[in-house]
Amino acid sequence: MLSTLSKKMLMCLTGLFLAFFLLIHFLGNLQLFLPQEQAHLQFNAYSHFLAGNILIKIISYVLYASIILHALDGLIITLKNRKSGAVYESDRRGRASKWYSRNMGILGTLILIFLVIHFQNFWYVYKFGAPPLDERGNKDLYILVIAVFQQWWYVLIYVLSMAALCYHLVHGIHSAIRTLGLYHPKFVKWFKIVGIAYSIVISTGFALMPIYIFFTVK
């Protein structure tokens, strides 16, 4: 059986991979901000390229495995922690830490629920459904994206989920660096700042996509 430290290491490695994946996903999705005509064809061509690339296919399996391992390991860790931690009649321990650091399990569950919705919205339809084709013959993912983000409640779900993602990343990246064993005070401080900046940029950027589409693209 893995030690408590090794279980955290699994959390750290899968988490860092997922956080890195977000950057690639984010950079690709920036195409949605292009003028509509250009965005339409370019985004579909990009999706087609990714779907047909063997390297991307391998990475996608690593991605699915990481999501499952991260969630399962997180569940195991949380259950164990629930058992080993104490319950007090009068409890003000919260003054010493941030709420999002104490509730990574809840934030993670929210993100997992979001992922189910997100996969169902796009991934499932693209892979197993029958999406329309664009004028170049690529599957028209762009139209799907636009259709989903015409509905205000989807925009709201996406934006709120990105807020949960932001807090999850702020603690997660910082915690992962600890688990990796970086103990030099100067670099720990720098990594913390970079981690927070990364979390804010990624989640705000993702949140702006549905908002931008809702208000500008018809």
């Binding site: 030690s3 408590t4 279980k7 955290k8 860790i77 164990k80 922690n81 058992k83 080993s84 931690g85 321990r93 003054r95 010493a96 830490s97 941030k98 650091s101 104490r102 990574m104 603690h171 910082h174 915690s175 600890r178 688990t179």
Partner: peptide
Amino acid sequence: DKESFGHCSNTEACEVE
């Protein structure tokens, strides 16, 4: 681990108190 202590979540509350 044998003593049934939990995992470290890096909340840093321990250092504060």
